[in-house]
């Protein structure tokens, strides 16, 4: 049997129900895409957590670098005006 270290890693995304977007739920090892889908079904949806699964090779994920963290994210920290918090919300408006 091939050891798990030789099997590629897959990132798993599950949509909990219609109308929601897929959410990242974790990762797992599998020899190929069809088996990754099945493993994801068994590991992440066995308690009725989902109606749809995506699996993506972890190697296909392009991630931001921790080294770029300051330049990427800090400038947004003091831009309070980008948040829609300067409106008076009528009391009748619900679900906002």
């Amino acid at each position: 049997m091939t050891s798990s270290r030789e099997w590629p890693l897959w990132e798993v995304f599950v949509r909990a129900r219609r109308g929601l977007s897929h959410q990242h739920v974790g990762s797992l090892h599998a020899p190929d895409a069809p088996m990754a889908l099945r493993n994801a079904r068994d590991v992440y949806t066995r308690r009725s957590e989902g109606v749809s699964i995506w699996v993506v090779p972890a190697s296909a994920v392009v991630a931001s670098s921790p080294d770029e963290k300051d330049a990427f994210f800090d400038p947004a920290a003091d831009k309070a005006y980008r948040h829609p918090t300067f409106y008076d919300i009528p009391a009748e408006v619900q679900h906002l």
Partner: peptide
Amino acid sequence: APQIEEDVALAN
């Protein structure tokens, strides 16, 4: 099982 994922699959 050969894999923890397969442990879960066979248990299911």
